[in-house]
Simulated assay, not measured.
Amino acid sequence: MLEESHFPINLNNFLYLRYPYHGKFSPEHLVFDANLQEFSQRVGYICNLETSGKLPPEEAYAQLKMLWKQLKRTKKELGIGGSPLE
């Protein structure tokens, strides 16, 4: 028989893992890191749905392309990554 856990699982934390930011701190970098982690999670979900046959390849590609454009726009709006010395 399975024992009940004394530490209930927070479903939100289980599904949407967040890792602490370890880079050079700035508010812009922190925001971009959060956006990048969300991008990564969503890419994983889309790929899994496509692999399992629940999402057509064309739709998966369209969604991934949209997510990539959003990430690029965010990077540009935050003004990060402009020079290699940054």
Results as ranks from 00 to 15, higher is better:
residue 33 D to S: 04
residue 34 A to P: 00
residue 40 S to Q: 15
residue 33 D to H: 05
residue 80 I to T: 04
residue 69 K to Q: 08
residue 40 S to W: 06
residue 78 L to I: 05
residue 17 L to H: 05
residue 58 E to P: 01
residue 38 E to Y: 07
residue 85 L to K: 13
residue 64 L to R: 00
residue 52 S to Y: 06
residue 18 R to D: 04
residue 2 L to M: 15
residue 12 N to C: 02
residue 82 G to R: 14
residue 20 P to D: 06
residue 62 A to K: 07
residue 32 F to G: 01
residue 43 V to S: 03
residue 12 N to H: 08
residue 79 G to K: 12
residue 26 S to D: 02
residue 23 G to D: 03
residue 40 S to Y: 14
residue 45 Y to C: 13
residue 68 W to Q: 12
residue 77 E to I: 08
residue 2 L to Q: 14
residue 53 G to K: 02
residue 48 N to A: 15
residue 27 P to R: 10
residue 17 L to M: 04
residue 9 I to R: 07
residue 45 Y to D: 13
residue 71 L to V: 12
residue 41 Q to P: 06
residue 17 L to T: 09
residue 64 L to P: 05
residue 72 K to V: 12
residue 6 H to C: 10
residue 86 E to Q: 12
residue 57 P to D: 02
residue 53 G to D: 00
residue 67 L to Q: 01
residue 61 Y to S: 09
residue 56 P to F: 09
residue 21 Y to T: 09
residue 59 E to M: 05
residue 80 I to F: 01
residue 27 P to H: 10
residue 83 S to V: 13
residue 78 L to S: 03
residue 71 L to D: 10
residue 36 L to V: 01
residue 12 N to W: 02
residue 61 Y to P: 02
residue 45 Y to S: 12
residue 21 Y to A: 04
residue 29 H to G: 04
residue 74 T to I: 12
residue 5 S to Y: 11
residue 26 S to I: 02
residue 54 K to D: 14
residue 31 V to W: 00
residue 17 L to G: 03
residue 58 E to H: 08
residue 55 L to Q: 10
residue 19 Y to I: 15
residue 52 S to F: 03
residue 73 R to G: 07
residue 18 R to W: 13
residue 50 E to G: 15
residue 19 Y to D: 14
residue 36 L to P: 04
residue 78 L to C: 00
residue 37 Q to A: 03
residue 51 T to S: 11
residue 46 I to R: 11
residue 51 T to M: 04
residue 78 L to P: 00
residue 51 T to E: 11
residue 27 P to T: 00
residue 84 P to D: 04
residue 36 L to H: 01
residue 74 T to L: 13
residue 55 L to S: 05
residue 27 P to M: 02
residue 49 L to Y: 10
residue 10 N to V: 07
residue 77 E to K: 14
residue 15 L to A: 01
residue 6 H to P: 12
residue 86 E to K: 06
residue 28 E to D: 07
residue 40 S to H: 13
residue 67 L to M: 08
residue 4 E to A: 14
residue 71 L to M: 11
residue 41 Q to S: 15
residue 47 C to E: 12
residue 22 H to N: 03
residue 47 C to I: 11
residue 11 L to N: 08
residue 74 T to V: 15
residue 41 Q to E: 13
residue 81 G to R: 03
residue 19 Y to L: 14
residue 41 Q to F: 15
residue 80 I to A: 02
residue 23 G to L: 01
residue 14 F to P: 01
residue 33 D to Y: 08
residue 69 K to W: 11
residue 79 G to A: 07
residue 48 N to Q: 15
residue 4 E to Y: 14
residue 10 N to R: 01
residue 37 Q to T: 03
residue 62 A to S: 12
residue 6 H to L: 14
residue 27 P to C: 11
residue 13 N to P: 06
residue 67 L to E: 00
residue 21 Y to E: 10
residue 46 I to A: 12
residue 54 K to S: 08
residue 50 E to D: 11
residue 57 P to E: 09
residue 74 T to C: 14
residue 29 H to K: 08
residue 34 A to F: 05
residue 50 E to M: 13
residue 50 E to K: 15
residue 60 A to S: 02
residue 37 Q to Y: 05
residue 12 N to Y: 06
residue 86 E to R: 13
residue 59 E to W: 04
residue 61 Y to N: 05
residue 66 M to P: 00
